[in-house]
Design a protein around this nucleic acid. Structure first.
Length: 445
RNA sequence: GACCCUAUGGUCUAGCGGUUAGGACACCACCCUUUCACGGUGGUAGCUCGGGUUCGAUUCCCGAUAGGGUCGCCA
């Protein structure tokens, strides 16, 4: 039988990083097994569901590169979808639930109570066979001991999570439920429900949770809890995916940085760790940086351009070749695209602003004549590539009897308005002779 | 309160009875260097505790402790 897994988020208005990892593990398993990855929207709590909230989930999954085989393709519950097991919005599956509840009532396994429908839960311990944790035997807690039965349908007619979750997994032919460990204890209820329906339950794999760096539970409000903040903060989705899979899973041979394609090949359920992991921003940053270093130039420019736009840097009027060359000089200078702007903004400014403090420091009575001498040498250069520019600067320095650094700093400030930035020689090559001379003249006026 | 899961440096992890306990991030020092970075070399730091089992426990069992989860007409 072919593997069918699902990611079944509730549209709360954002995609939790832990939820994203759950989706990732499901997706990986589906791809690894050549199975089907289903997206199902658990929107039974109508009060807090909107189309926009569903779109957040859809956009988040697509951003990570987790395309699903079945499910909605837009946030519209009545909109287009793919796959033959729909609808994929629980809010559109009311008839199915109604029929199933009636089935339980007819069997005497469910009953009405104060307007709600409750399930006659077994009082016997239930053993959950879990692919990650092993066999887990759940007995009733003291509170459950008093009344083990639980609500299936609210008095307002809305079915609750446990019910719809089980029915959908059943109707959609889900073979493996890969979900957060926070559902482990609840699985006893789900198993009892499957038994009540006379159906074979799927295999379960409860994966550990992601905690804050201080070990506390990561909730909505915590820093970095929302997947899309990583986009805002300049992380490449491929790096986020790679980092996420490392939380609770690790391949053989001390491998860490590897493309999704390779992860898919190696990924499997039994290797998943059993303990929670803390989210380590430093490590994510490092992974991101590893991706930046080896990233194809086009991709680098694509992500860099988007980041600059977010940061308010306009690239209008500059050629793609210029932008590519400019951004390339900043490669390996920063770890996330959020830090790109200060390294390249001067490329896209007509008049570079030089802070008075820097000007006073670099353009002194002593340095100005040297700068003028260098400017004169540059003016005569035929080829303005980084090698020639460097060679010229160094020979002028020798001629003036100073170290290269003495010329480098004023020129850098003249060209960029900053003391730090890309390799001076390379950035001058990109700026071009005319512009470099113009900037030196302006600074040294 | 009850029940469940978990426990290797600060963090992510390898390990599955005998290892100088391996790797990565972070951190520190030095070197390199046109800035900032990179890179190179070296370094600090770990099996939660207590009982067992065993010739021998990081590894197996029990307990304690700690962290996380669940017990809802939320999902």
């Amino acid at each position: 039988m072919s593997v069918r897994v699902r990611f079944a988020p509730s549209p709360t208005g954002f995609l939790h990083i832990g939820g994203a990892r759950t989706a990732l593990f499901n997706w990986l398993y589906a791809r690894h097994m050549g199975g089907t990855f289903v997206l199902r929207i658990e929107d039974t709590d109508t009060a807090r569901n909107t189309q926009a909230a569903v779109e957040v989930i859809i956009n988040g999954l697509r951003w990570l590169g987790l395309e699903w085989d079945e499910g909605p393709t837009t946030g519209d519950p009545d909109g287009p979808r793919k796959g033959g097991h729909g609808p994929y919005f629980q809010s559109r599956r009311g008839e199915i639930y109604k029929k199933r509840v009636q089935e339980l009532v007819d069997k005497g396994l469910a009953y009405s109570s104060e307007g709600a429908v409750k399930f006659r839960m077994t009082r016997e311990p239930i053993t959950i066979p879990d692919l990650v944790v092993g066999n887990v035997t759940r007995v009733l807690t003291d509170r459950e001991e008093i009344d083990p039965d639980f609500v299936l349908v609210r008095s307002d007619g809305q079915p609750v999570f446990h019910l719809v979750n089980v029915i959908d997994d059943l109707e959609m032919g889900i073979t493996h439920v890969i979900r957060g460990e926070d559902h482990l204890a609840n699985t006893a209820k789900h198993l009892a429900l499957f038994r009540a329906f006379g159906a074979e339950p799927p295999k379960y794999a409860h994966i550990p949770l992601i905690l804050n760096s201080d070990g506390s539970k990561m909730s909505k409000r915590d820093q970095g809890a929302s997947l899309m903040t990583y986009n805002d903060e300049g992380y490449a989705p491929e790096a986020v995916l790679n980092y996420l899979v490392l939380l609770g899973w690790s391949p053989k041979g001390n491998r860490e940085v590897m493309p999704a394609k390779e992860i898919v090949e190696m990924f499997d359920l039994p290797q998943i760790l059993r303990h929670n992991a803390r989210f380590d921003m430093n490590k994510l940053q490092w992974v991101n940086w590893e991706y930046l270093k080896t990233m194809a130039p086009e991709r680098f420019v694509e992500l860099g351009t988007a980041a600059l736009q977010r940061a308010g840097v306009s690239l209008e009027g500059y050629t793609p070749a210029y932008i590519l060359a400019a951004l390339s000089t900043a490669k390996e200078k920063f770890k996330t695209f959020a830090d790109l702007k200060p390294f390249v903004d001067f490329y896209f400014q007509k008049e570079v602003e030089i802070p008075a403090e820097l000007a006073a420091k670099q353009f002194t009575a002593e340095s100005r004549p040297r700068l003028a001498r260098l400017r004169a040498a540059y003016a005569e250069l035929a080829a303005f590539d980084h090698a020639s520019v460097e060679k010229t600067l160094k020979s002028v320095a020798t001629e003036l009897g100073v170290k290269a650094g003495v010329l480098v700093h004023p020129v850098r400030v003249a060209c960029t308005g900053k003391e730090i930035g890309p390799s001076l020689y390379h950035l001058m090559e990109v700026l071009g002779k005319t512009e470099v001379l113009r900037r030196i003249d302006r600074a040294n006026a």
